[in-house]
């Protein structure tokens, strides 16, 4: 599983980073995203709704992002 470390990054950089990185994986694959920005969970949920991908919140700073559709 790919890992994307966005600890210390402020909004919207973690979302921009996952938006870039998601292109590098295939549908069904998952990226482990680490982010401690207070907006990350909220914006990842909104990002998932808008882009059709899935986000699983493992802990306040850890998210599993699964690509759900072809680019």
């Amino acid at each position: 599983m790919k890992e994307l470390n966005c600890l210390g990054m402020k909004c919207p950089l973690p979302i921009i980073a996952i938006g870039k990185e998601i292109r590098s994986i295939n549908p069904g694959e998952t990226i482990r995203l680490l982010s401690d920005d207070p907006a990350s969970e909220l914006d990842l949920r909104a990002w998932a709704r808008m882009t059709g991908n899935q986000v699983d919140v493992k802990s306040p700073n850890e998210f599993l992002v699964t690509k759900s559709k072809v680019d």
């Binding site: 207070p38 907006a39 909220l42 914006d43 909104a46």
Partner: peptide, 14 residues
């Protein structure tokens, strides 16, 4: 801190 209003509505906060 993200907008508590947008956050509560589930709207993109950035």
């Amino acid at each position: 801190q993200p907008s508590h209003v947008l956050a509560e509505m589930g709207v993109l906060t950035h």
